[in-house]
Structures are given as C-alpha cells and as structure tokens.
Design a protein around this nucleic acid. Structure first.
Length: 509
RNA sequence: GGCGGCGUAGCUCAGUUGGUUAGAGCACUCGGCUCAUAAUCGAGUUGUCCCCGGUUCGAGUCCGGGCGCCGCCA
C-alpha cells in the first residue's frame, strides 16, 4: 500500500496582496507534493484563503462592496499567483465555502459536547487592526497597540465562549515529547515546549461584535473568532463533517508547512482542539523562517524602505521565469532559519546553477550528439563511472526531500550535473572520431540528464520537462516513479535529440 | 527578568557519539579546453573554527566564564 502524504500551506488572509512571503511556503509545499507524487505516494496538496474576520469586513466597507465580494476578488488574486508559479494544488479551500462552515460547526460542536467549550466573560484591551486582545503589560505607553504603534487600543468586554485550553497542557507536552520529530526544526519544538511549561490559559473563541464569520451553532449572535475557524480548513478539505470515510483516509497523515509567526496556533491551539474533539493531532509541523530583504541599498535610498511584502511574485516571474523563482526559493534559503532575499543573490544562483550548470549541460550535450552521433542519442553504458555517482545522488536527494530540506536535496541533485560536465571534459568526445566510444560517453551524459530531469522536476517542473523532451523522451519527468525510473541505464538510445536555445538564458547582473 | 538558540574561509553555510594536514558551493587567481549560454574542467589562495580558562593523550566538537547577535514568554 502506498504511503499517504497530505501537505498544507497556511491559508492566506485575503486582505493581503500576494507577495513573495506567501510564495515561499507555497512553493515548498508544492515541491514536496511533487516529490511524493514521484515516489508514488497518495498525495494531497491543499492551499487556500482565509476570508473571515473584522479586517475583511472593514476593508470591504471602505471599498463599498460586500465582504464576500472583497473575498472573491482577493482570493482570485492568490489563485492567479499560484498559477503563474506552477503550483499544482489538489484543492484550493476558501473559508467562506459551505463545506467549511459545515466542518467548523461540526468540529466545534463536538468540543462543546465534550464539555471543553464554556460561556464566560472577557474584558481587556483590544486592537481592532490585530483583531486581538492584549495584556496591559504589552501595550505601548499603556494605551497603544504594540504592532500598530500609534493606534490606541479599545477596551472590549464580551460574553464569549472559551475553549478550555488549560486542560490540555500536559497532554500537549506529552504529545510533543513522545513524538520527537513532530515539530521541526528542533529549536521551534523547544520553543513550543517552553511555552507550554509556563502554563496555558483558556482562550476566547467566539465574537459577538461582528457577523462576518462562521455562526456558532448553539448561540445566536456569536461567530467563531477567525483563527478557530481558519485552522479547521485542514480538516474541511479532506471531508471532515461531510465525508467521514474520506477524512479517515487522510488524517492524521498531514504535514503542515507554516511560518514561525503562527507556531502557537498550529502547535498548541490546533492540536488541542483536535484532542478535544477526539481526533489525533497532526503528524508533522514544519516551521520555516522568514525571508528578509537585504543587500539592495538602492531600494532603500531611492525608493524608500522596500519591504518584502511589496514584492509581487509575478514581477519576479517576469525577471527570472517560473523555475528561476521556484529554484531560488527552494535552494537559496535553508528550511528553518531566516534567509536573505536579494536581487543579486537570485541572479547569482540562477546563473551558476540553472544557466551555467544545468542549462549549459543540456545545450552542449545536444550539440555534441548532433555533430558526433548524427543527432541520435546513444544508450548509456551499464558500467559508466557516472552510474555510481547517480546512485549516491539519488539517495542523497531522496533523503533531503524526506527531511523537508529542499536546499539539501537540490544541492545533492546538482552534484550529478557537475560530475557529468567533468565526465565530458575527461573524455572530450568532440575530439573523437564518431563511433562506439563517442556513443558511450554521450549515452552516459544523456542518461545523467534524464535522471536529473526527474530528480529536479519537483523544483523546476517546466525546465525538467523541456530537457526531457529535448533528449527525445516521451511523456514527462513528473510521471516517472522513483526509485525505479532513476536507476542507471533507462535511457533507451535511438531517440532524436534536439538542439534549441538556452533553457535558462544567462541574466546580466 | 525567565527559557532557548547562534557566533566556522570575502559571501551562504556543512561539520555524526571529541580523534589523522577543518570542508562544500559561490567569488577570486592561474592553467587546460573550445562541444557548450564569455559556459565548462583542473589546480590553488584565504580561516587565531568570537574571546579566556578548564577536562582530556587529543576539542570547532564537552564544561565554566565573558563578549556580540537573535528567538520565544498568549
């Protein structure tokens, strides 16, 4: 039976315009999903948009449209962005969909029935922009929001339903301690444990001050606070509340890819909610750092302080192509720590890895095959020196993806490209007389390109497909199966190899 | 204040349970090649592994202290 791999991105708040910070986890999740499809796993990749809450209601009002129209408009922008980045999601969930309302109400009703949701009152400083309560100690000068500095907070008193989170403190600690890999990287896991050991308060999960949300089924006039509605999307999409059998198929084989700013929601509140509803907590939560904007003095002095959130993915795609952007996000920032994003770095990485190494290898192989082999690709040798390298590369690449370390996986794959370039230099087939020796060397090179096309396809799907086609193979690399298809020696020979322009044209710095 | 993490070549980083001359990629220098996208291949240079002290036959790796940076504490 194949393994099941269910991967999610955060759902993005529709008040934001899609930016590179959204693209980062989305491309990672997409690449992971593509890798697991190669493995033949049953794979399900979910992304979507978070559409409720006060901020959406407010900005819709300012724009003179309904919240639903506002959500429709901005949700579509995320879909368009993901289309331009080659994101092959299996489902795009919107929290305003009826299926999601059903799931939210079903799940929270279950918790209510179990006795862990109770009515209580809450009074405290509240920032409208954050949609969050604060402690007095957190306020700036005792009156202003720490995030939206300069905005005074208001005091809000509400009769709310509270989730008895405090009852799950020990169970959460046990869960994390008994499942060492459940939150990665380890530093983030420790952070969560530290938070839990300080003790947990109950949390307010409903609001009466607005109507743009999922109605609380047992209490007229209440809607669920947007976060407790949003988290449930991961259950909605696989059938919770509407198709129990389907839900049982996928849950809890889930991998949540999240940013470090939403750890608490995903590593504390969400698993506690699931426990309260009698459901297993998530299998894995992978926490990535932030992309920071650095290295570009121009943008700061001439255009004012540039922010990452100002960079539209579509602009980068115009400059570097889909695969150029995807490759940068996956290769240049190790998963976990914060990483610097700069134009220079993207160009450097693009030119060295994509243009000079991969793209140029495909070009030179096609040309030599054209001149020395009559344009017909020969078969590789079983005992090629590259065969052993390829086996090591396959193993290291697989380990990298298994560890949710795309930069490690890609670095491993690129070793085969470098070794293939070296193999060509060692043999200099362009100096030989056409014949079996030339055929052997070029067959090896073609086979290496074939394997690289498969291994790199999760990161650079379009370029991998192009290389695949140029060396005469039918179908597409993403339809191959690892590990069988990456075993040395599958390139059949006798195929027409075509020469065309650069797959990745060099970019002038 | 409490808890935790980090500080290794110009840059980005790897460095298993302490063990031979500390590594990779990029950048740089020199040389080769000219099939290829001024690409590629080879060789090479650069490190007080933040500082001080300790444990040990031996420490980037363990312990203590210091300096610097960072994260979390609803």
């Amino acid at each position: 039976m194949p393994d099941r791999f269910y991967v999610t991105t955060p759902i993005y708040y529709v008040n934001d315009a899609p930016h590179i910070g959204h693209a980062y986890p989305t491309v990672i999740a997409d690449a992971l999903a593509r890798w697991h499809r190669l493995l033949g796993d049953d794979t399900y990749f979910l992304t979507g948009t978070d559409e409720h809450g006060l901020k959406v209601a407010q900005s819709a009002e300012e724009a003179g449209i309904t919240p639903q129209e506002q959500a429709d408009r901005n949700s579509a922008r995320f879909r368009d962005t993901w289309d331009s980045l080659g994101i092959a999601y299996d489902d795009f969930i919107r929290t305003t969909e009826p299926r999601h309302h059903d799931a939210v109400q079903a799940l929270l009703q279950r918790i209510k029935d179990s006795g862990d949701i109770e009515l209580d009152t809450y009074e405290g400083p509240y920032c409208v922009s954050c949609e969050a309560y604060y402690q007095d100690s957190e306020l700036i000068e005792g009156a202003f929001c720490p995030i939206h500095t300069g905005k005074p907070v208001t005091t809000l008193k509400e009769e709310n339903y509270f989730f008895r989170l405090s009852r799950y403190e020990q169970r959460l600690i046990d869960w994390i301690e008994h499942n060492p890999g459940v939150i990665t990287p380890e530093g983030k896991r420790n952070e969560v444990l530290g938070f839990l050991r300080q003790g947990l308060d109950d949390v307010s999960i409903t609001r009466t001050s607005l109507t743009w949300g999922v109605p609380v089924p047992w209490a007229q006039g209440h809607v669920f606070y947007v976060w407790y509605d949003a988290l449930i999307n991961y259950a909605t999409a696989i059938g919770f509340g509407t198709d129990d059998e389907r839900f049982a198929t996928w849950w809890p084989h889930v991998h949540h890819v999240i940013g470090k700013e939403i750890i608490r929601f995903h590593c504390v509140y969400w698993p506690a909610m699931l426990m309260a509803a009698g459901i297993d907590p998530p299998h894995r939560i992978h926490v990535h750092g932030w992309l920071l904007l650095g290295g570009e003095k121009l943008s700061k002095t001439v255009h004012g302080p540039a922010r990452l959130t100002d960079i539209a993915p579509s602009r980068l795609v115009d400059d570097f192509g889909v695969d150029g952007v995807r490759y940068h996000l996956l290769r240049d920032t190790p998963f976990g720590p914060d990483g610097d994003f700069s134009h220079e770095r993207v160009v450097e990485r693009y030119n060295s890895d994509l243009a000079n190494n991969f793209g140029n290898l495909v070009s030179r192989v096609a040309t030599v095959v054209g001149k020395q082999c009559g344009g017909t690709g020969p078969a590789p040798r079983a005992d090629s020196p590259l065969a052993a390298v390829a086996a090591e590369v396959v193993a290291a690449t697989a380990q990298g993806w298994a560890d949710v370390a795309p930069s490690v996986a890609l670095d491993a794959t690129w070793r085969l490209i470098r070794e293939t370039n070296a193999h060509l230099e060692d043999n200099e087939p362009w100096k030989m007389e056409p014949g079996p020796e030339v055929d052997a060397v070029m067959g090896d090179a073609l086979e290496a390109v074939r394997i690289v096309a498969i291994l790199a396809s999760p990161a650079i799907p379009a370029a991998a497909r192009e290389a695949w086609t140029r060396i005469g193979l039918p179908g597409a690399p993403e339809h191959q199966r690892v590990p069988d298809a990456v075993a040395w020696g599958s390139y059949p020979g006798g195929l027409a190899v075509s020469k065309a322009g650069p797959i990745f044209p060099r970019i002038k710095p």
